[in-house]
Simulated assay, not measured.
Amino acid sequence: MPDSVRAFAGSVAGRTPHLDVLVNSGAVYIEGADLPDVSDDEIESVMAAGATGTMLLTKHLLPLLRASSRPDIVNMISACGEVGHRRSGAHPAFYAAKHAHAGLAEILSHRLRPEGIRVISLFPPDFVQNGPRRADSDLTARSIIDCVLFAVAQPRDCFIREFRFEQVQRPHH
């Protein structure tokens, strides 16, 4: 993986002198309540993408972000990366990868802010690709994108560190 990440970052650097926005999403969502619900290879893949891959990609694109006049790192973490979150059907490997991603975002926000690099993290619950955008409906991908666009459009002195979302409150039967 490190070789492919370095090659990708080199390819980006060959096309542009700077990068304004890096969006990190990382881990592929997998379901499973119990550790044995998925294969060892699936666990390794989710952890590698969500933790190692995110860190390496950020590391190797950081010079291009530093060359930008308005650099932002946007982290699509997940509510699964919040301490105490237990409402998703995601596999424990996904939870672990997203906690690693949240930890990386936290320290990068602190360390890169003096350079003017904003680190913005989103913690959405499980969401749907499409649907009505109403208070009684699940969060949609479009709503998450709108939050990202809002955050990166803010003036440079505005550091929005996190977006935390509430899940739909379903009536109890």
Rank of each mutant, 00 (worst) to 15 (best):
M1D: 10
S4P: 01
S4N: 06
R6Y: 04
F8D: 04
A9S: 14
S11V: 02
V12T: 05
A13N: 10
G14F: 09
G14P: 03
R15Y: 02
P17W: 12
H18A: 15
H18L: 08
V23N: 08
N24A: 10
S25P: 03
S25N: 15
A27R: 01
A27G: 09
V28Y: 04
I30P: 03
I30F: 07
I30S: 06
G32N: 09
G32D: 09
G32T: 10
A33V: 05
D34I: 03
P36V: 00
P36H: 00
V46I: 06
A48H: 10
G50F: 07
G50K: 03
A51T: 13
T52Q: 14
T54Y: 08
M55Y: 14
L56G: 10
L56K: 08
L57S: 03
H60C: 07
L62W: 07
P63M: 05
S68V: 11
S68K: 13
S69D: 14
P71R: 10
P71L: 07
D72S: 08
I73K: 04
V74M: 02
V74P: 00
V74T: 01
V74N: 00
V74Y: 00
M76Y: 04
A79F: 01
G81E: 01
E82Q: 10
V83P: 01
R86V: 12
R87E: 11
A90N: 06
H91G: 07
H91D: 08
P92G: 12
P92C: 13
F94L: 06
Y95V: 00
H99L: 13
H99Y: 15
A100M: 06
H101D: 14
G103R: 00
G103I: 01
A105T: 13
E106M: 14
I107V: 15
I107Q: 15
L108T: 15
R111P: 03
R111Q: 15
L112K: 11
P114D: 01
E115F: 14
I117Q: 04
V119I: 15
V119F: 03
P124A: 02
P124V: 03
P125R: 01
D126S: 14
N130I: 06
G131D: 06
G131A: 07
P132T: 11
R133Q: 12
R134G: 05
R134M: 09
R134L: 15
D136N: 12
S137P: 01
T140E: 00
T140R: 04
A141F: 02
R142Y: 03
R142S: 06
R142K: 04
S143R: 09
I144G: 05
I145H: 02
V148W: 01
F150L: 05
A151T: 09
A151F: 01
V152H: 02
V152Y: 03
A153K: 05
A153W: 01
Q154T: 12
P155G: 13
P155L: 14
C158W: 04
C158G: 01
F159G: 05
I160C: 06
E162R: 13
F163L: 11
F163T: 10
F163P: 00
F163Q: 11
R164M: 08
E166D: 10
Q167P: 13
V168P: 02
Q169K: 13
P171R: 11
P171K: 11
H173M: 04
